[in-house]
Design a binder for these strands. Structure first.
Lengths: 198, 198, 198, 198
DNA sequence: TATGAATGAGCATTCATTCAT
DNA sequence: TATGAATGAATGCTCATTCAT
């Protein structure tokens, strides 16, 4: 193992420890000492890999955003029907959350609570996603005429709200293949039929 | 103005200042000094009205939960059609958020970020709401057969997600009568027709 | 009851409350609020009778010193034998302590702990007492030749030490007529015979 | 100098600074900042060595109690005559006080003033000492028949009272070999002959 | 590079004192 | 004179960050 590899591994261990600790105690409640202990390194070592505590959060944030880059897939999805589109779209999102659950639980709360992250997340992730979604809805021919601006927000709200409900601890939708499948089916049903019977 | 009235007013001013300051800087980032300055009182005065900093957050939390008590209206809404039901339901929620926007912006982020509040909110508010919604869906005859457990969560997620999007600063859905009306129409459309055209 | 009498009564009640509270929690540990509650007056009222918290302690201190003025009795006691002298001397002291026990318990600890009171007590009470005792021992003809300076200190030490032991809570010498009588007899025996049998 | 040695030295410096500052201003009057300045360390450093301010006082208290463990010597002293016994006993006590004067001056006042320390001191130190002294007096054959319970208390009172007089600042018995020798001689005289001449 | 002791700014909280009523 | 709400200085303690080893 090269020096670089060892360094990368340490960095990884620290980030994982940070994610875990932030999830348990929140960003403010987690001390560098807590994280260092969880990562089994000394306090000072963390500063060899990250400039400060905030940088840990930002690194996690960047991972989260990277993990959930979906905007670019929207354009490519125009030629599928609504059902397939929703399945692909939400399905991918659910899979990402499943694979990076600690990351999401650690970062999402702080995104809402921290003005700086709030803006970063909105500008860098949400706004482009909303624009892409509006655009997509506009171009689709197989949907009812909708208020694209608002419907895009409804779509995003579902994403974020379900994630929040998981973070709140609701057991019925903790990530897992089976749960995600049922959830996806319900969402598909809503988008293809609505809720009301004729 | 009686002594009691003045005290009530002070308490109110302090709570408003706390809400405002928490919104700006987050709970941890807001110092008692910040809040005292915003309320135009001395630091110590706050402690004549609240036991400690946490009590400020809890008082705001209690208000939020009180402001959004919707679960009890669910049972009464069985005899309306889906369209009216959704309108009444989300409409009421949107109105509450509109009237208490500062409160929601201050408290919602902390609910996700603070393990203690998280549980309090889930057990005291979300869980009952989900149970009521599941029950309601079960009893309605004018809806498609649905996975009630999951659909209840989808409904709640819409609530919470839209609120989050507002907190994130999205301008297209900042609270306001007109915006809320458009949003409500979009939600109604989704629940009655779905998104996909036949 | 005249206005003056009522005021004097209040002052008395406050001082007693202060003595009691200082005894329970120590001077620093006792808050003005504590004392006000014990005296059943409002915080502010205390300041109509005493300039500040320290003044409460000083007033108690003055009472203690006044209650235990023994120095002047020393000169008058030259013409009694040692036994009677010791009996009169310690007996009077023990009686004073018995009658003002709360006062002593409240003030004595603070005398040792507070530099200011320390000096005040030593200069105003202890030093004169020691001088008088030295002088008295010098003049007595019915005692062994002694190191008057040191013996005076031994006498005072007995006073103060017994008081301290009471404050420490020792049950065998809590003030009371019977206990005081036994204690006095023991002291008399020590001073007339010593401890060692021939 | 190893890391451990340096740490031990620091701890020592902090404790000495605490003893000194407590002596000057009393426990409550001494701030952590005061102590840190006296020890020439930063405020926070103190907390690397002691849990909190109270722990400083308790550490000093433990040292004082350890420094003055005399009870166990009582049993061994039965086979000496009263004179030698008193000499050995008080002599040892005086030597301990001389060698740890700062410690005694810092802690003794707080023992009386702090309910918690009061109990700790009485139960852990005074009560055993009194029991041992009573027992010792009971077993000795070369003393006058005495009220052992009360005489034990008289003995302890002398200890404590002399210490208090030193703390009060009396110059004639500030610790020192010569003073201690004179004091000891006076005490011996009292216990062997009494004060009264035949 | 890793360590962890030292640092000191920052903050929640207390409480003696004031003063308008 | 009595009240008790308001004040704000003071303080114990935490913890992110630095740096000598």
């Amino acid at each position: 193992m090269t020096r670089q590899e060892r360094a990368a591994q340490r960095r990884e261990a620290i980030l994982e420890a940070a994610a875990h600790t932030f999830t348990q105690k929140g960003y403010s409640g987690a001390s560098i000492k807590d994280i260092a202990e969880a990562a089994e390194v000394a306090d000072g070592t963390i500063y060899n890999y990250f400039t400060n505590k905030e940088a840990l959060l930002l690194a996690l944030f960047d991972r989260l955003v990277a993990a959930d880059q979906v905007g670019d897939r929207l354009t490519a999805a125009l030629d599928t029907d609504v059902d397939t589109f929703i399945a692909g779209y939400f399905g991918a999102h659910l899979a990402r959350v499943r694979e990076n659950y600690d990351l999401f639980r650690a970062v999402i709360p702080e995104i809402l609570a921290t003005p700086d992250l709030r803006d970063r997340y909105y500008q860098g992730f949400v706004a482009p996603l909303l624009r892409a979604a509006e655009d997509h809805l506009h171009k689709r021919s197989d949907v009812h005429p909708v208020d694209g601006e608002q419907m895009a927000r409804v779509l995003y709200a579902l994403f974020f709200g379900l994630l929040s409900l998981r973070i709140l601890g609701d057991e019925a939708i903790q990530p897992g293949e089976e749960t995600d499948a049922r959830l996806l089916a319900t969402i598909q049903q809503l988008f293809t039929q609505g809720l009301a019977a004729d």
